[in-house]
């Protein structure tokens, strides 16, 4: 007892210190450690989740970019093919049109030639008719008084027959 007194140990003070520490332990556990640790865990989980999501997003982005490249490449190939087709088709169309135009021109030329020939023939016929009529009237005028009426008609008739034969 003397030793305890010399070290200043008092049971009441000892109990007070034990109770004091108990209260602090309870309060720290309840109001500091628990919420802080749960918050740390929550934050850790969030960070892990975010990193996971970021990785997934990156992966998705890469996939989307790959897909996009593929689509663009495909579209370019398709466009090139279409362009080639159009070029070859346009050439064909141009050739066809040229051919058609040529044919049409030839036909027009042929038609006009035929028409010219017909018109020339008609003109010749008209000219021949006009000349024969003129010659008849000339013959009639020059035969007047030289021959009788019957002779005159006979000569004209013969002349007419000759003209008809020559036409």
């Amino acid at each position: 007892m003397n030793l305890l007194e010399r070290f200043g140990i008092e049971p009441l003070l000892l109990v007070a210190q034990i109770v004091n520490f108990g209260i602090i332990l309870f309060a720290l556990q309840r109001f500091v450690y628990k919420p802080v640790l749960s918050m740390l865990k929550k934050r850790k989980d969030t960070i892990e989740e975010s990193l996971k999501q970021a990785n997934e997003t990156k992966k998705l982005l890469e996939e989307a970019e790959e897909k996009q490249d593929k689509i663009i490449r495909k579209a370019q190939e398709h466009a090139a093919k279409i362009l080639n087709d159009v070029k070859s088709q346009s050439k064909e169309v141009a050739l066809e049109l040229e051919e058609k135009a040529k044919k049409q021109a030839e036909r027009i030329l042929e038609d006009s030639r035929i028409q010219i020939i017909q018109e020339t023939r008609e003109a010749e016929k008209k000219l021949a008719k006009g000349i024969s009529e003129m010659s008849l009237s000339l013959l009639e005028k020059s035969l007047k008084g030289l021959f009788t009426k019957n002779e005159e008609d006979e000569i004209i008739e013969r002349a007419l027959k000759n003209i008809k034969r020559s036409n």
């Binding site: 200043g8 140990i9 210190q17 034990i18 520490f21 108990g22």
Partner: peptide, 12 residues
């Protein structure tokens, strides 16, 4: 520096 406290902590 008081044995009351250190003893209390030791007991706990």
């Amino acid at each position: 520096s008081d044995l009351n406290l250190t003893l209390a902590l030791g007991i706990i």
